[in-house]
Design a protein around this nucleic acid. Sequence first.
DNA 1: GGGATGGTGC
DNA 2: ATACGCACCATCCCG
Length: 887
Amino acid sequence: MDKWVLIDGNSIIYRAFFAMPPLTNSAGLHTNAVYGFTTMLLKLLEEEKPTHMLVAFDAGKVTFRHEGYEAYKGGREKTPSELSEQFPVLKELLQAFGIAQYELSGYEADDIIGTLSRLADEQGVETVVVSGDKDMLQLASDHVTIALTRKGVSEVERYDPAEIKEKYGLTPLQIIDLKGLMGDTSDNIPGIPGVGEKTALKLLHEYDSVEGVLANTADLKGKMKEKVETHQDSAVMSKRLATIFREVPLEKSTDELAYGGYDAQTLADMFRKLEFKSLIERMALPEAGGGADAGVPAEAPTYEVVSAASLGKAELASLLASSESVYIETIGDNPHQARLIGLAIANGERIAVLTYDDLMDPALSAPVRSWLEDEKAPKRGYDLHKAELALGWIGISLRGIAFDALLAAYLLDPTESSQTLAALIQRHRLSAIQTDEAVYGKGARLQVPEGEALANHLAAKADAVRRLVPLLSEELEKGNMTKLNDELEQPLAVVLAGMEKQGIQVNPAVLEDLGAELEKGITRYMSDIYTHAGMEFNIGSPKQLGEVLFEKLGLPVIKKTKTGYSTDAEVLEKLEPYSEIVKMILHYRQLTKLQSTYVEGLLKEIRRDTGKVHTYYRQTIAATGRLSSQYPNLQNIPIRLEEGRRIRKAFVPSEPGWKILAADYSQIELRVLAHISGDEKMKQAFIEDADIHTKTAMDVFGVTAENVDANMRRQAKAVNFGIVYGISDFGLSNNLGITRKDAAKFIEQYFAVFEGVRTYMDTIVAQARQDGYVTTLLERRRYLPEIKASNFNLRSFAERTAMNTPIQGTAADIIKLAMVKMDAELRERGLRSRMLLQVHDELVFEVPADELELMKTLVPEVMESAIALDVPLRADVSYGDNWYEAK
DNA sequence: GGGATGGTGC
DNA sequence: ATACGCACCATCCCG
């Protein structure tokens, strides 16, 4: 199915020029209009996925419209040189994109587009016309929609005939009449003086067209009649000028508009010239600078793709023995439900591909299965954690994972948003492969190809992995992260997969009972809220809620969001004194949150076959090195409020008589801070195992332990938290509800006591500025380019990150170490106890009765000895019949 | 389908 | 003229 996108080049570049702030590259070339144009192009490419594309330009100054009306487009300001110098640049850029461009002497861009859109109509090709000019609406039809720039350039508003009808009450062709009547000052088209949009629309609704109006001047009255009658000729001429000419003698065939995608290297070079660094990043274009070796040619494959079925036994065995990489393809985000598509195994010469069906054919796949399960056969791949789970659910255990390109790429830059294989190999300037989206489609249009197309794609990925492995290994080595990868993250991936496959039992009856109870509360609050408001509305809609609270009930507006009134909990708490309805809304929110996210959400995640939920820990998401948890997220199960905490009663052991045992690190982040800052006072506090917040209060307020009241401790606690997050007076003042000045004083007092902490904060920021990155105790790294930004916000954010990441990241390192050690310990001791969950500073196990006593001491022991710091680590352990009881 | 808003955890 | 760090997921609402 073809899709054409036709762009009015002149119109868009003008819009872009005026919409964007001035921008120049270091050579002094203005680039703002080109930049704006580019962002619009990218958006169009992504959203429309055109098969054909054309940017049309006006050619020269004189067009056929000037014949008979020389003043056409007269009175326009001369194009500023800052813009005119960008035209040739834009044309060069379009070439780099591989997008066709066209101009024809004597015609305007409108006319070229009008002619093409006529062809599109005739051929029934779906087409989008992009312009900033409302005139274009006359081209709208069943097949042609018009996208007009709204504000800026990248935002467009689309019009089909129905929408034009709705907005103006006109057909597309009547848009011409509209302009005939009202004129257009920017094109110096006169229309009928004194007739604006309002009047013109009224006339057209009555008489349909310019001709209709002129034929019925008798019906008109007074001034209006006079105006129309005296300017009849002007109206007719204006209509003619406004009519887009749709019979331009094009010298281009529509085949020449075909868009085949851009060459990443060419585009990257162009962007580099323009200094569009953010776009290079965003599009994951090859990084290294132009020069002689720019433009890595897309090499012809150096390998042979074969179906495993076509290989002889010996051939397959030899390939497996010499394999350098494996790519295992799954479709679907949740690996516990992902569809296994197939796999490709590569050595330098040959790549064998097995489809899912091949894998399910025992005769054919036996050697491959045993290779996959062979601990001693090393596998180098991409996202083998996910592969291990997907394989696990079809009865194949993946063993012998030696290297994972995804994991390595994450360690090399944990903030990189796209770690897809396609992005990775572009970053390493290897010859490109197709993106998954290009091969498989997405969303509703997801369609996995069969046969050769699939085999080639899997093979390309396996080969990409094969070539990436040595590059990534070397980079890890350079970054001192080989050990982190080989001895912590990689082993952890296997431990995590084990926990996830094991899953945790959830008792649905507990959730259902809780759900029924919540439902009652929700119903009650809902009706109370309606009564109070004097109307029914959707309480869950911040928009409607805002209208009720701030317009109907007239409560004071505390805070606004981009789109309207803010109604978050912080705002509502401030509104409590004004109306009883506020508290009801807060309660309603609490209950519906529990109901939808935790009761219904969790029930949906229970697998019928196991009665368990199997979360998926993602190891390559969080910039600090923490894990994240999905499907369901088991790292944010409520605990703070009793109502929510009861959700935890549903998490139970999977075997009768077993217990849930949980152990959590006490103050691990502050202990880490004490260690890395070396602050003597703080270290001493932990060595004495004091209550750190009380101790902080004593030191900061200069009082004895007995004189620390609850409020002082609360404030000290807030400061401690602030310190961990990279403190600012603004943040602390916000949190404690005190003035910024007082907060600043508070922080100053804190630093006066904990001098070592102050020194650490200063040093780490300076170090980040010098190195461009910060590290954790185990050499995990995070780059902070914005630490040098001139923008205060960006820079401050980077500075806080520099303070926080080593702390949060080291804490993550430590619990990860504990997990790997714990897993080994359970194995070596032949225990049946199972590690099930990790919640950042907590580990959750299920434990048979006869191992309970042992585990109560073993778990904290392993956690506390995971690493030796200058302060002791402490883990508290508890257990019960469910997660709630283990407190 | 995706952005905005809001809320849960550590 | 100023958002203390890191996540995931629900609903609403617009296109």
